[in-house]
């Protein structure tokens, strides 16, 4: 079983559209939406939820007003400024470090387990799909990603799937690190813009820092041929395999609007291109 993750650095370059296409193309796999902050892959895959689970992210400190003697030790030592002058804990600022709980001389602080989201095991017409929804204004997306990845790997091993294919999130921080670590290949989807290359370069450095092999796709490549050439040169200079270039095509936009993967469109050239890109990705991994 091999793990492939689709990332980009910059948002909106086409991760989800490409992951959706692979979901429709590749057999004997499980699909995971690791973008738990702003998950969109479900819109293309129309999942039937089979199993619903709550995500317990950690703890929230609660101060019992009746017991509290207002020594303010907790307020003074909380590094997250989560305790206000009325000695009430701000649930958004509290990081659940439990420091105050250990500090309180009279045990007026309790820890409440925090439910920060939900995750689902679903069936789609393209096979099993694991996805999640972070609660509103909740943190800890990295932890939720690690959890659903672990679940997906367990299912894949149990059912002897060949692939775990993951849709990642933008950026280079904790959610991205949580979804790329120990994968067999990170596919970086970029676009021919200065921002696209700038951000792809940063996330490629992160992938290399964690020793994850990288391959690149240039999406909407024909919107700016000059920049596409620059990115091609960047790939050569950095010894990165460029696995494909996808043109800007209204049929891609139309398939998103109709909530279909591009493998369901009538555009045979595009479908052939996706197949070629997948073959290039799995070569030598």
């Amino acid at each position: 079983m091999k793990q492939i993750v689709i990332i980009s650095g910059k948002g909106g370059t086409g991760k989800t559209v490409i992951t959706g296409a692979f979901a429709a193309l590749v057999c004997n796999k499980i699909i995971v939406d690791c973008d738990v902050d702003a998950p969109d892959l479900y819109l293309l895959l129309n999942p039937k939820i089979k199993e619903k689970n709550v995500f317990k992210s950690g703890y929230l400190a609660v101060i019992d007003k009746n017991t509290c003697v207002k020594c303010r030790k907790c307020q003074k030592l909380c590094r997250f400024k989560a305790i206000n002058d009325e000695l009430i804990v701000d649930p958004i600022a509290c990081e659940g470090c439990k420091f105050c709980y250990y500090l309180c001389p009279i045990n007026a602080i309790t820890l409440q387990e925090k439910i920060s989201g939900e995750w689902f095991v679903s069936e789609t017409k393209y096979g099993q799909f694991i996805h999640a929804k972070l609660g509103i204004a909740e943190a800890n997306s990295g932890k939720l990603i690690s959890l659903i990845r672990k679940e997906a790997i367990a299912i894949a091993e149990n059912k002897q799937y060949d692939w775990v294919i993951m849709d990642g999130s933008p950026g280079v921080g904790c959610p991205v690190i949580a979804c790329i670590s120990n994968t067999n290949c990170a596919v970086v989807v970029t676009e021919p813009t200065l921002s696209g290359l700038h951000d792809a370069d940063r996330v490629i450095q992160v992938a290399r820092h964690f020793k994850v092999p990288v391959k690149v796709i240039i999406n909407k490549y024909d919107l700016n041929n000059e920049m596409t050439i620059t990115i091609e040169q960047y790939c050569i200079d950095n010894k990165i395999s460029l696995v494909g270039k996808i043109p800007f095509d209204q049929t891609i936009v139309d398939s998103i609007v109709h909530k279909k993967t591009i493998m369901e469109s009538s555009n045979m050239v595009l479908r052939g291109l996706i197949k070629q890109i997948w073959d290039n990705i799995i070569e030598n991994i």
């Binding site: 902050d37 702003a38 972070l134 909740e138 943190a139 997306s141 933008p170 950026g171």
Partner: peptide, 10 residues
């Protein structure tokens, strides 16, 4: 602001 809806965006 950064994309997403969790801690960095908040």
């Amino acid at each position: 602001a950064p994309p997403g809806t969790s801690c960095p965006m908040i």
